[in-house]
């Protein structure tokens, strides 16, 4: 393969990893944030955690792989983004640590205070992660100050601009909705009913924020600074989110889940097509932007990692898909069946 097609391939592969991560971990974050608000009863909280218990760690690996793949395929992107967004990354890592350890440790002690502490850590960790991811991606869409040496010249507050924060809040709201839809599919009985009521309210909030973000993105010209016009993809994303409201009202849980998932996937596709071939757009001078051409690894290294990705990604999809099939049953609050 030519050097350029390898660079494009890796742009697509990293997009796939992020899309996989948003789709899968999106509902994990949503479930985590909803945890303290859906129920006060311990066995109900345990049922909620058990819906994602077997899969959250495997879902998080999509993020780690996106990080590793970025390092391998676009070392300058990896270096500029993670050193540039240093404190945001630090907070994201804190969120992920708080959440991850709490899933594992929460039910290993029966003291109510112990469990409550970890429940809140799950919720706060998930919230921090969702908010920061959304903020970071919105800033990538907006562009960030980068100098001629590919160095980010801002600080944490550079990222906390209105557009960035709007992106963070919207992502949080959509993940909350995604999580509620997932829970509606996985829980049963009264808890399932309660989740449906939450989903209705969350849908309104998520839709309003999403529309505002969409209008802002379009009006501010962040839209088509790359070479691909996203075309009808963002319109389909909006439509999917709006249609989800109908399915939530009709209690058609499967379709509601699919529609919000489609919205998340299509939004990410829009993001990546908006930016291509840029990886990090410089607001200082567009000529300083990191692109797939000036930030990539060598042709040989891209070839090596391409082969391994093309071998392993299909395998990963197969066995992770099989996991979801294995744990497809709804979770009851019967203590004997709960693991975490």
């Amino acid at each position: 393969m030519s050097y350029e097609s390898l660079q494009i391939l890796w742009f697509v592969l990293i997009a796939v990893l992020w899309i996989g991560f948003y789709f899968l971990e999106g509902f994990d974050f949503g479930v985590g944030m909803l945890l303290p608000f859906l129920s006060k009863k311990d066995e109900e909280r345990r049922a909620i955690i058990n819906t994602i218990g077997p899969v959250w760690d495997g879902n998080e690996v999509w993020l780690l792989t996106a990080g590793g793949a970025t390092f391998a395929a676009f070392p300058h992107w990896y270096a500029s983004m993670f050193s540039g967004f240093y404190l945001a990354m630090f907070l994201l890592l804190v969120g992920l640590i708080l959440r991850g350890i709490s899933f594992e440790y929460r039910s290993k002690d029966a003291a109510p205070a112990w469990r409550k502490r970890f429940d809140w850590m799950i919720a706060i960790g998930s919230f921090m992660s969702a908010l920061l991811l959304g903020t970071v991606f919105a800033n990538l869409a907006r562009g960030v100050p980068i100098d001629e040496k590919m160095m980010f010249t801002g600080n944490l507050f550079t990222l906390l601009n209105p557009y960035g924060l709007l992106g963070g809040l919207t992502t949080t709201a959509v993940f909350l909705l995604h999580g509620a839809n997932f829970l509606a599919l996985k829980l049963e009985g009264e808890l399932r009913e309660r989740v449906n009521l939450f989903a209705k309210k969350l849908w309104i909030g998520a839709s309003v924020l999403y529309l505002v973000l969409g209008v802002f993105t379009y009006a501010s010209g962040f839209w088509a600074r790359g070479i691909i016009d996203p075309g009808v993809i963002p319109i389909a994303a909006v439509a999917a989110l709006l249609v989800a409201g109908y399915f939530i009202n009709q209690k058609m849980e499967g379709w509601a889940f699919i529609m919000v998932a489609a919205n998340i996937v299509l939004t990410q596709v829009t993001f990546f097509s908006m930016t291509f071939p840029n990886l990090m757009l410089s607001t200082t001078d567009p000529a300083y932007s990191l692109t797939i051409y000036n930030a990539s690894a060598s042709q040989y290294a891209l070839g090596v990692t391409s082969i391994s990705a093309l071998i392993f990604l299909p395998l990963i999809l197969a066995y992770q898909g099989w996991t979801y099939y294995t744990f497809r049953k709804r979770i009851s609050t019967d203590k004997k069946t709960l693991v975490y």
Partner: peptide
């Protein structure tokens, strides 16, 4: 990064997914 990135990316693709997914199955399965 051109050199170190490759083993790290392969580690994630080959090992992390395998470990985390199947441990999930082992714990809950």
């Amino acid at each position: 990064g051109d050199i170190i990135g490759a083993p790290l990316a392969i580690e994630a693709l080959m090992a992390f997914f395998l470990e985390s997914t199947f441990l999930g199955i082992w714990i809950f399965g």
